[in-house]
Nucleic acid binder design. Structure first.
Lengths: 246, 246
DNA sequence: GTCCTTTCGATACGGTGTATCGATCGATAC
DNA sequence: GTATCGATCGATACACCGTATCGAAAGGAC
């Protein structure tokens, strides 16, 4: 970890250790770099994806990466696009427009589970990488020609609305999950740890509805909550179809 | 900006400048710190909110803040809660459940416009600050007793779904907006700058739907897109009400 | 006035992203 | 085979980050 300070050159040339014949060039490539960054993010968390650490995982100096990537942001962008690549690799979205949109939502959600860091990267920049575009293309294509989706505007609105919901829902799950994860607690333990605070707040009397929630809510799993919300949105899209035809 | 390196003590005591009678204690407080951080984030961007800079804005050394805040994360959390404070300060959410939910969505969206950095902070952690709770409470209260929302589960699901959409939509807007902003381009210029790339992609023939979008889509403003999506979700919630009653 | 306690902030440490530039290596020209 | 050139690499450096430590200064108690 500490850079060897290159001992002062008092020793004569032939006494110094041979500079080691440069272990292996291992040509490196954008793809290898991104793959290393991905596994690092998956195993150690996004915070551990630093230029130095990614380079170290490839037996290279930090600056080596800048031959393939001009900025750390660019590397992160490539990571996101790689995930989109996994998504499009699952094939086209089949079925009716409802089935297709539902499949898209669940695919995206699965990716967010497989790569918890994805949520943090989805915020901030708009993604126009080739795989991101391909994923969007697949969604648009699945709706093309469906009854009620004659105009691209209608298609865009449907995909956009579902995507907005998915992103928000994913964020919810991720934040709750990471709150548990990083305190090393299970869901139960975490609820148990924060409930004293919440009960104190409720006890002030200023949050009657919160009290009701804590008493009466049956907290459904993320899966059913997600499906219910998604159902609701698809239902909403369906009701707008006839009006659109008029 | 550069720490004065305290010139080596060659000068005799009375030649050294008087240590300045500590300009003003200016007692400082959590609130003043958070306010400083807020204005810094609003004017210079979230990236400029560093412990050092916030402290400098208060004529204090960096470590001074740690008497009031135990970590930078805590400061960011307080910033978020301060925004929630602005939101609850606008008063309760009135009207029918649809009006209340719509008002909530638009309020949140306005906050995201006023504080572009908010989107980045909403990701990642779940927010349980007093003002965040109060905002949630207001939303829950607005739906309490509405026909079809007899159970807290129904209320939570409705609020949760709308909130998920709002977060996702806000993120979309923010990322597009920041892409323009930080390249110093207007919306038109930015579209003009990225369209060559997109056209090249479309020209490959692998993205027929994208081509159709670029040719045919009338890109509606963020406002109407948001309202349409919101309408859609409220409609979806409405259609689920009768079923829930059964 | 003297001692004690509390507070403050200068300094330091280990980390970050990245610019610079000398050294090194491979390929080409003779 | 040797010399030269050009590309490539990575050690070093810089500015900045969040925060732990701890000596010095300030204020209060006796």
């Amino acid at each position: 970890m500490s850079q060897k300070p290159r001992e002062p050159e008092t020793a004569l040339i032939w006494e110094r250790p041979e500079p080691a014949p440069r272990p292996k060039p291992e040509p490196l490539s954008r793809e290898r770099i991104v793959r290393a960054a991905l596994t690092l993010a998956d195993t150690e968390g996004l915070a551990s994806v630093s230029v130095r650490k990614v380079a170290a995982a490839l037996d290279a100096g930090p600056m080596r990466l800048y031959g393939y990537v001009s900025t750390k942001e660019e590397l992160l962008e490539l990571m996101v696009d790689a995930v989109y690549g996994e998504l499009v690799a699952e094939g086209p979205l089949r079925g009716s427009w409802r089935e297709a949109l539902r499949a898209m939502a669940q695919r995206t959600r699965r990716a967010a589970h497989a790569h918890p860091w994805l949520v943090d990267l989805l915020v901030g920049r708009i993604h126009l990488g080739p795989h991101a575009l391909a994923y969007l293309e697949a969604a648009l294509a699945a709706l093309d020609g469906a009854p009620g989706f004659e105009t691209v505007d209608a298609i865009l609105q449907a995909v956009g609305t579902v995507n907005a919901f998915v992103i928000g829902a994913i964020r919810n799950e991720a934040s709750e999950r990471s709150a548990e994860r990083e305190s090393g607690m299970t869901k139960k333990e975490w609820q148990h740890a924060t409930s004293p605070y919440l009960e104190r707040m409720v006890a002030t009397g200023r949050f009657p509805m919160l009290g009701k929630v804590m008493r009466e809510a049956t907290h459904p799993s993320f899966d059913v909550a997600f499906d219910q919300g998604l159902d609701c949105i698809l239902e909403g899209l369906a009701t707008r179809l006839p009006r659109r035809k008029k």
